[in-house]
Design a protein around this nucleic acid. Structure first.
Length: 287
DNA sequence: TATAGTGTTATCGG
DNA sequence: ACCGATAACACTAT
């Protein structure tokens, strides 16, 4: 009788950030963290704060306040200003949530606004085990990047100009020119943040399934109609996930597991690696 | 204990 | 210089 190797049970992970999760974080910063004076900064995590040296972000922000927050794809950045008479603009403060990051804002009254749920069990208020960057405000509140895996990033003046158009607002023409170049698998192109900003692994699978396109198909083999359907599918998937609170609410995502079947035709889904990422698709409908 | 994980980036070869 | 593929990065629950 064969020894059946005891495969480790798949780790159960909570919600990792894609465009809609980052937008939720942006709104939390917008609603709760702006206009409060920065009294202290913990930028001691040299990996998350690379390429800065400890104290560099701190000295750039002390005594200033966040005045606005923006998002493009999965990147966020805050404008900063001085206080009092000198409202002179300071450096931009960039955030990226990476694979496991989320924003937690503490209010002056001690309560917390928690922007995500990477761990299935969640996180209790006051649990700062995975705090990788912190702004402390003069009113006693704070803004923290909680990030167990430390693949997130905080930096001054982030190079957001390298990003492609945001997937939530990209025009059909911009999308077409992003696809009409080279020979990469279409999923790899969707994930290329310099071509199109904001589509992550799950959004890509959802959009390709919606458009009935096989993820490994080279972009130069897509017809005009394929690109048109894919554009509609990307815009729809992003809009739906924004409206409903995250990529997990999309129709194809629950089927994306061992034994999963196509929600439309019932065929067994196929799994493989495309563009270095785990990829699920319907082998019957997606051609 | 080995493994998988929804992301980005430096580097290499063509 | 461009494009595509790959490894590296860091960490933890199971």
């Amino acid at each position: 009788m064969p020894l059946v190797s005891q495969r480790a049970a798949p780790a159960i992970f909570g919600h990792m950030p894609e465009l809609p999760e980052v937008e939720s974080a942006r709104r939390i910063i917008d609603q709760y963290a702006l206009r409060r004076v920065i009294e202290e900064v913990d930028d001691s995590d040299t990996y998350v704060c690379r390429p800065h040296t400890p104290g560099e972000i701190r000295s750039a922000l002390l005594g200033r306040r966040l005045s606005a927050v923006h998002r493009r794809g999965k990147s966020m950045w805050c404008e900063t200003t001085g206080v009092g008479r000198s409202r002179k603009p300071g450096p931009l403060l960039g955030f990226h949530l990476g694979m496991s990051g989320k924003i937690v804002v503490g209010k002056a009254n001690g309560s917390e606004v928690d922007g995500g749920d990477y761990w299935e069990r969640g996180r209790k208020p006051g649990d700062l085990r995975f705090s990788r960057f912190r702004l402390s405000f003069t009113d006693g509140g704070f803004l923290v990047l909680v990030d167990p895996r430390r693949l997130g990033r905080v930096r001054l003046d982030p190079p957001v100009e390298k990003l492609g158009p945001d997937a939530a607002v990209v025009t059909r023409e911009e999308f077409q020119s992003a696809m009409h170049r080279g020979t990469a698998p279409v999923k790899a192109r969707l994930l290329d943040q310099e071509a199109l900003a904001g589509v992550g692994n799950l959004l890509a699978d959802q959009a390709l399934w919606t458009a009935r396109i096989r993820p490994s198909r080279p972009v130069d083999e897509l017809s005009t109609d394929d690109v048109d359907r894919l554009y509609d599918a990307v815009r729809e998937s992003v809009a739906d996930s924004l409206a409903n609170g995250g990529v997990h609410t999309l129709s194809f995502i629950p089927a994306r597991r061992a034994g999963g079947t196509c929600p439309r035709c019932g065929a067994a889904l196929q799994v493989g690696v495309v563009g270095t990422r785990t990829t699920w698709w319907c082998p019957v409908e997606q051609t």
